[in-house]
Write a protein that binds this DNA or RNA. Sequence first.
DNA 1: ACCTGAACACCGTTCAAGT
DNA 2: ACCTGAACACCGTTCAAGT
Lengths: 226, 226
Amino acid sequence: MSAKASRKPLSRQRVLAAAVVLADTQGIQALTMRRLAVELHVEAMSLYYHLRDKEALLDGIVETVIAEIDAARLDTQGYEDWRTRLRHQFLAARHVMLRHPWAPGLLGSRRTIPAAVYTYYDDIIGTLIDAGFSYHLAHRALHAFGSLPLGFTQEIFSPESAGGNMEDDAAETDLAAAAETLPHLTAMVTAEVHDSTDPTLGWCDSQAEFEFTLDLLLNGLEHLRG
Amino acid sequence: MSAKASRKPLSRQRVLAAAVVLADTQGIQALTMRRLAVELHVEAMSLYYHLRDKEALLDGIVETVIAEIDAARLDTQGYEDWRTRLRHQFLAARHVMLRHPWAPGLLGSRRTIPAAVYTYYDDIIGTLIDAGFSYHLAHRALHAFGSLPLGFTQEIFSPESAGGNMEDDAAETDLAAAAETLPHLTAMVTAEVHDSTDPTLGWCDSQAEFEFTLDLLLNGLEHLRG
DNA sequence: ACCTGAACACCGTTCAAGT
DNA sequence: ACCTGAACACCGTTCAAGT
């Protein structure tokens, strides 16, 4: 019954779970490879057997949180009205994010977006389309929601991070593959690119989205103003 | 005319300006004390004469950007309608932030907020109050604006960063001093704290703000839906 | 298959010392 | 007053080596 014998073998899942706990309790700046190794009673270099590098670790814990949100989303099926449905989804996401305050900021600074984020947004678009939204208004709505679905913004101010990775070689094959798993999202992108005046700049006109959101809020507030 | 003779003496301003340029061109992760020193043709340790530590450097460049936004704000005086006024202010801020894409994320992760941010928000509140808003609705409006005024959110998901620093010893004297320079902000806080059911938790009920913003957007979109 | 030790390049920072 | 050199603790990471 030595201390050595009590160690379970490491695994990607166990490392990621420990990383999330460490970030939750000590803050994201405390999440270093070496401190994480100490937490797992292992040498720092052992982590590299399960994760390629620290970027992979950060990608992993972001995916973990998104998976939590996705699990919570399943409980919100079965609301018929689009507003109450999205309301419950966003509040569920917020609830998860409150347990991982570092997650929105980390998600916003990541350059690769986990696949689960896309399915999450695909589901939102589906809800809007079913409620009679045009693809264009659904697109605008996504931008207007801003940080509400996942707690981070950033795309409003940095156009290149939103839809700018279309210049990759594999972009078209990605789109073809995405059409099956993300039907609403691909349909929306296709519809919007078709209408776009300058599709080479990506399909998001950030300035226009910004102003749409702005006016939506300003007009809504003007209406509430006594 | 040696290389040594061509060096102007360092100063806090010159260091901060170089830091902003470095962050703009190479990204915020490239902004290290040592690389910044190289850029200024100086040893890394020289920077510590002008700035206490790296935190002070980051605070400094955030303040620099906010000052840029504040300068742009002066051009938007003289719009009478509250909506066009705020519209121009937020668009001017966005314009500045687009030149410093790292700024919103950095601002959101800082724990000390530059004074200029408070005056910026005080001005917004003043605009709303002059337009007939109650302090309560103005407060809600600020939360609803979210990332639009400065490009970052974060307070929506992390309640403690918004108005939680009231437990400091100097909080009351701060408030007294703030009453002169930030009349609208202090009046709003006073009014809201008075109405608050549990003022010990801070004066922001994040859950309520979140739901207000959510419903404002959902109702606005419902109205636009054909 | 899974883990480790030694080593390297890079950080922020202190402190005594130079001009 | 302003800058530097040497040194320290800490970081991510490689690579050859252990079991």
